[in-house]
């Protein structure tokens, strides 16, 4: 379970060495929501509205200025920018296998675990395990980051735009997989996306964010059939049609 109560996080830009001019950025400005265990909370909203900041607050990379964050169980995050979160000096085998190594598993168990997870994200493990992050394409790196998190089996997983650079076919595979694993292990997800179609597919409840606050929280069905907030409506109107 995840519980956020009136959480605030402001950034104070320091422009000069001594002076601090410029207004502070209210990245998260009084956000509250609860995600029951085993459920997915989808977070959508315009660029810069504070979604990634919430993600970092939930997993404890950032401390809130005020408010309360409660998480039951261990947390993990798949970052929006996969490349900067993968250690450039570690091979993919080590990156994905590290959580198993830390938990004290034997070598052959680790190898098997890594192989299984890589094939699940549709990467050919034999060709991958000895390569380094820079030797992969953008979407492949995104999948490596997802594989690592799933190996860790956290109770709470925050996914920040995890499938944004994946084509629909691989995207579908990974979204289905996330749902399967969730059912099997009763994981709790916070799923950040700018794609309302993906949000609808994944979420039990959704929050629409704007300028640091949640302007609407409801089930995807309610949000899409009768959006209350003007901004939500605007988002819905701009979904490209094919």
């Amino acid at each position: 379970m995840i519980e956020l109560k009136n959480v605030k996080k402001y950034f104070h830009p320091r422009r000069g060495i001594f002076s601090s001019d410029g207004d502070s950025v209210k990245a998260v400005d009084g956000v509250s929501f609860t995600v029951p265990r085993g459920k997915t909370f989808g977070l959508v909203g315009e660029s810069g509205c504070g979604k990634s900041t919430i993600a970092k607050l939930i997993v404890g990379i950032l401390e809130p200025d005020s408010g309360e964050i409660k998480c039951q169980g261990n947390t993990d995050i798949v970052f929006q920018d996969p490349f900067s979160s993968l250690n450039p000096r570690m091979t993919i085998g080590d990156i994905v296998g590290e959580p198993l190594f830390i938990s004290g598993q034997k070598r052959n168990e680790i190898k098997a675990g890594v192989k299984r997870m890589l094939s699940v994200v549709k990467l050919r493990s034999a060709e991958c395990i000895d390569k380094y992050p820079h030797q992969f394409s953008g979407g492949e790196r995104q999948r490596i980051a997802i594989a690592r998190s799933l190996v860790r089996k956290p109770h709470i997983l925050v996914l920040d735009e995890p499938v944004s650079s994946l084509d629909v076919s691989i995207q579908a595979g990974i979204l289905n997989l996330l749902k399967d694993i969730q059912e099997e292990m009763y994981l709790t997800y916070v799923f950040i996306t700018h794609d309302l179609r993906v949000a609808e597919f994944m979420s039990d409840a959704m929050g629409v964010m704007k300028e640091g606050t949640l302007v609407e929280v409801a089930s995807p069905r309610e949000i899409y059939s009768s959006p209350k907030d003007g901004y939500t409506r605007q988002l819905l109107d701009s979904i490209p049609k094919l």
Binding site: V168, A172, K179, R221
Partner: peptide, 15 residues
């Protein structure tokens, strides 16, 4: 064909 559309609440996406 894999492009998800709003409103077609499928249990799974074709992959």
């Amino acid at each position: 064909s894999c492009i998800p559309r709003l409103g077609d609440k499928r249990g799974r996406l074709p992959g």
